[in-house]
């Protein structure tokens, strides 16, 4: 790790200002990605801006069919939240399956989506539930937020403050564990909402995506059998020693069927 300045702003405005004043600033949330990357010297920011004392980034609120989760909310808090469990059980379930207890107690939703790891779990929920990412300067629709592998629509210094999830009629997330990292080798989030059925896939490709083949089939019948043996195009999917594109495509169908079966 290279030397850096450590800053701990006490408000949203101070955090954004700290970034502006820094030569090469980086926000620090749970540090579960950022610290290892800095230790490996793959990132060496001049200023590390710790978001842990920023009150505007905290808390979970359910209001008028919207579950708003502050960016600094840990995976463990989301998993344990009675409000989330009641409103969107699939989201609490997803959070409870991220990493291990250590990771869940440090890692945050803001950090996870800002990082947009191709195998991360949260992006599937954000896209699957058509959430809105709220930042210090605007509101970004899920469809526009994740732009590619580790890529997001966030501008230089833009800070995620919360994520707003509309409550669905029914939803579920199914994850097939990567045998080594236990991220998602493939993860599928399905949701039946007032505006239609959505199916988001993570892990399988370079970036989370909506699988229209699944959505069409599930729009016809929202039932496991509708997608169980469905043909998923493997041509844009990832291939590595843990799973070929073909295998990942197959898993998308299997997991979608399981998710539909348990959706509530």
């Amino acid at each position: 790790m290279h030397d850096f300045n450590y800053l701990r702003p006490k408000s949203l405005a101070d955090a954004v200002a700290a970034f502006k004043n820094a030569g090469d600033g980086r926000y620090l949330a749970g540090g579960q990605t950022m610290i290892p990357v800095m230790k490996q010297r793959l990132a060496s920011p001049s200023d590390v801006i710790d978001l842990s004392q920023v009150p505007e980034l905290k808390g979970i609120a359910v209001n008028g069919g919207i579950v708003a989760i502050g960016a600094m909310t840990s995976h463990a808090e989301v998993a344990a939240s009675k409000d989330v469990q009641a409103a969107i059980p699939a989201l609490a379930d997803l959070a409870s399956g991220i990493g291990d207890p250590h990771v869940r107690n440090r890692g945050t939703i803001g950090g996870s989506i800002a990082n947009n790891d191709p195998a991360a779990d949260y992006p599937a929920a954000v896209v699957g539930l058509n959430a809105t990412v709220v930042t210090d300067r605007r509101r970004i629709a899920a469809a526009d937020f994740f732009t590619g592998m580790f890529g997001t629509a966030l501008e230089e210094g833009e800070l995620v403050t919360r994520v707003e999830f509309p409550t669905p009629e029914a939803a579920a997330y199914e994850k097939f564990l990567h045998p080594a990292s236990r991220f998602a080798l493939v993860g599928v989030f399905v949701a039946r909402t007032k505006s239609g059925v959505r199916a988001a896939v993570t892990g399988a490709g370079p970036c989370v995506f909506r699988e229209t083949v699944l959505e069409q089939a599930l729009t016809r019948t929202f039932a496991a059998n509708a997608v169980k043996n469905i043909d998923i195009d493997a041509s844009n999917l990832n291939s590595d020693i843990h799973g070929s594109a073909e295998y990942r495509a197959h898993l998308v169908g299997v997991l979608a069927a399981r998710a539909v079966a348990k959706a509530r």
Binding site: H178, P179, A180, S181, I241, H242
Partner: peptide
């Protein structure tokens, strides 16, 4: 069931060179 110290035959790089790829 899990472990293999896998080398890429072309590059000779160890593909499973970290705990995110070497499955214990």
């Amino acid at each position: 069931l899990l472990e293999v110290a896998h080398y890429d035959p072309e590059s000779g790089q160890m593909v499973t060179g970290s705990l995110t790829d070497y499955a214990l």
